[in-house]
């Protein structure tokens, strides 16, 4: 054990950091794009009925493909990983934003219009707050997936915790596999829990019971 840490400690720390960096950047970019697109789609429900299923089909493309294709066109740079992961992070958040907003019950929207709110005010004061728990569960999904797919960064030699797993699998070194897998698992679980906590924090008391299940 001690031998392992003295040999790989520094490297492991760096890998954790790189991995986390990929996840953080990609999810942030993905979240912003997805939120905007989700809101946009919710404004044009007619077209969204066609667009959303198409997006769902694209969602079946595994992350490895994004990374692979971008690798071929952009090359072995961190941007490749970040773009691929960002694209992948978009889908769950986009879908949940759209669904969350569309599922805001009509009476609330009608009451808001009746109160004289503008479209923008209805969005920011009623629709988004009510949809927020749904949006955040999309964020959780994206984050967990991204931690998972970020392992693939190592496939094109760009570090992260995947490097340990790859090397371990390649050389039949179980310690290396575990050394990569355990921190990745912990990272996913911790980020999941963190987002659960954030979700609780930002969900107003009036909406909580509804989503307790």
């Amino acid at each position: 054990m001690q031998y392992f840490f003295s040999t790989y400690g520094q490297m492991l720390l760096k890998a954790v950091f790189t991995h986390f960096y990929y996840v953080l950047i990609s999810v942030s970019i993905g979240f912003c794009i997805a939120l905007l697109l989700g809101i946009l789609l919710s404004r044009i429900p007619k077209y969204s009925k066609i667009i959303i299923p198409i997006i769902s089909i694209f969602q079946t493309i595994p992350g490895i493909v994004f990374i692979g294709i971008l690798f071929i066109y952009i090359g072995m740079v961190p941007t490749t990983v970040i773009i691929a992961l960002s694209i992948y992070a978009i889908f769950p958040i986009l879908k949940n934003t759209y669904v969350g907003i569309c599922e805001v019950p009509e009476p609330y929207k009608e009451a808001a219009r009746g109160c004289g709110m503008s479209q923008f005010q209805i969005l920011t004061r009623v629709e988004l707050p009510i949809a927020l728990p749904t949006i955040i569960s999309g964020l959780r999904m994206s984050t967990v997936y991204t931690v998972s797919w970020a392992v693939l960064a190592a496939m094109i030699g760009l570090g992260g915790l995947g490097e340990f797993i790859y090397r371990g699998v390649g050389t039949n070194n179980n310690i290396l596999i575990i050394a990569g897998a355990i921190p990745a698992a912990i990272m996913a679980i911790c980020l999941g829990l963190l987002i659960d906590y954030v979700q609780k924090l930002v969900t107003p008391r009036g909406l909580r019971e509804e989503n307790s299940k």
């Binding site: 009476p107 609330y108 009451a111 808001a112 009623v126 707050p129 009510i130 107003p204 009036g206 509804e210």
Partner: peptide, 8 residues
Amino acid sequence: QIGLFPNM
């Protein structure tokens, strides 16, 4: 349906 905003 009353329509009180549940988040407020």
